[in-house]
Nucleic acid binder design. Structure first.
Lengths: 208, 208, 208, 208
DNA sequence: GATGAATGAGCTTTCATTCAT
DNA sequence: AATGAATGAAAGCTCATTCAT
């Protein structure tokens, strides 16, 4: 399964979903302001609108909140990213669109993505595996598009090159968030997107 | 000045240097294993070979240790990187060498770089500024090489493109550390380096 | 308001009152034995019958305990003092009674008053203001009785003399506690009271 | 003996005297600003112009500094007070002069006296005894003047009344320092002195 | 299911004192 | 005699977690 099972004391699944959404929303805001370690469980509970006792009816440990946050952010990124993709675009245009969509989503969810990036190391090994797997599956999605393009004879690249390009594209998305302190000084979102797209397109090899 | 002044109770500057080196060495190891927040000042002192009281003779707060660690890591990266560069290489070869050197250094110091990347957010605003400035100055160094190449007519690129390429090169270095969980699955250091170099060289524009 | 607001984590006001009473009672005893600075928060919590964590659910800092102690002692002094006064006594008798009551209360609460006198300098400036204001209001109460006596033509004294006499009376009360090491060698409570009353009565001027 | 023996590692008595004067001068200033408990031995040494190691060559513990400070302040008060007294004044004038001189000295040395009054409780039982004995001997000096006046038929008072009056006079001196927060609001030094003198003179009984 | 008072291990930091130089 | 680096016990305070109501 793609998601870790987080045990709850409460049985009602609908309530669990509702309460966890409240807590994630509150936690995202707090983690953004103060980071995971400086945020207390009491603060999360209060910001979520219930008591500390109730918080622990829906999770087992503070780390669970972080996991749920990361999971929820991944859902957000994945959903928006997928929505933006048009599978019917022709060849190279699909790659371009892929990059533009990714950067766009990363920009929209920059605060959330930053949390995930900076705090995920505080996760237990097990939770981290789940989070990394979701990242990997996204990279895999990008890679499969590249492979498809190759199959259609649009571009020429080895399996290894496809893998690296997928990683590079992912990183171009992420870096807009975690190097924003540097990038924002020089580029608007549009400039950044255009230039990165151009760079990738130039680097693509055309089959003879 | 490029470095933040960290006050000490002890006067002997040579001793301060020595003790801080001990403490940084111990801290790097501990931060690697457990992260900054989970490492206690007592552990750092003990691992450095002196008492908790002595630790606080050389710093003012736990955060100072993190700053010294980041600073020391930056020194390491900068030094090694600079040593590897050969200013006499012809045109495009210099860019290639730049990328190869950076990735090489990042690989050598991957554990340290990872600490800096993951924990620097725990720094105070003031300390963080210093750390980011050092990163910025390294990016700037790369950018100036690119501009030089342009001046010599080796490549064609706008100021903005130079800036972005510098950032991209830096990121290609960093990503070998912070995405190693994914990259190591598919690439050896040599493969990764070669492919990234090729990708960059392909994307460069030649002046007419 | 005459009292400083001391924030608590716990919401239940009745519980706050109860726990703070426990903690004040414990603290008074400990401060008596070892003074404020030598008493630890752990000792206070233990003597009060709860854990250190619980202590900090009801105060924000150790200084708050001292403030609550001073406040509680002032309450005790004020309450007992007020109870002892008979507003219907004729003229000079009221002044005599005032002095006797004050010394009597100071004797009853000598240990507590001594704490307040010796430790209040450890209070923050803000807390100290509150404590001094309560002292001032008591002095003012005495002064107003003196002025009343003057209005009724029982005694003759200027405004300034009334102010000083009020301060002198307060001090005659306090000194029975903070100079007890000297006074107890020579006087019983009764002797001290009688002699001080006589001295004051002799010093009063009768209107012509 | 009237003074406690404070052991030193150093033999040279003249040096001991000199160094202790330096340290007392520094300590008085620091205790005034931050109180005894908040002042560190390091600060005292530094302000005195020598190292922490040297400080401990001349005392055995931090408490010794406090004792030396109290002792020095008492010396100051005693010396100035004695200088001001004119043994040849006639009867009641001598008492008046006594009170005036005391208040005058207390005003001059108010900061020092306040330290002694507020911090002496931090002394060990043994040191405290010495400090209280010096206070007692001053009270005794006042008492003996009162008795002399009685012997000369200037005033009429019992032994017990003499004792109390001596204590009251001492307290009128002290209170100008420790209740200055209240007294300064209403009185100048001159007003305070005049009114207290008048009050005492009025309360004196004349022999028939 | 919800509450929130209670807990105590554990953290960072301070500072009087020592002792080798 | 003077120095100051080293020490470590001890202090104030925090906060994830539990559990009786």
């Amino acid at each position: 399964m793609v998601k870790r099972y987080v045990p709850a004391m409460v049985k009602d699944e609908i309530l669990i979903k509702k309460r966890r959404e409240q807590m994630v929303k509150a936690a995202v805001k707090l983690f953004q302001e103060k980071g995971f370690h400086r945020t207390t469980t009491r603060e999360i509970a209060k910001a979520a609108g219930f008591s500390i006792g109730t918080l622990y009816e829906y999770i087992e440990s503070k780390e669970d909140v972080l996991y749920l946050v990361c999971d929820s952010i991944h859902d957000g990124v994945k959903t928006r990213f997928t929505e933006m993709l048009d599978r019917n675009l022709p060849g190279r245009k699909r790659i371009e669109q892929l990059v533009r969509s990714l950067i766009h989503v990363m920009d929209e969810l920059q605060d959330e993505v930053l949390i995930m990036y900076q705090e995920s190391k505080a996760l237990s090994k097990e939770s981290l595996t789940y989070v990394l797997n979701r990242d990997r599956s996204m990279t895999e999605g990008i890679r499969s598009v590249l492979i498809e393009c190759r199959e259609h004879g649009e571009i020429e690249l080895s399996d290894l090159e496809a893998q690296l390009l997928a990683e590079n594209i992912m990183t171009k998305g992420y870096m807009w968030t975690f190097r924003r302190w540097a990038l924002r000084k020089h580029f608007t979102l549009e400039q950044y997107t255009d230039l990165q797209v151009e760079e990738i397109m130039r680097s693509l090899k055309t089959p003879k």
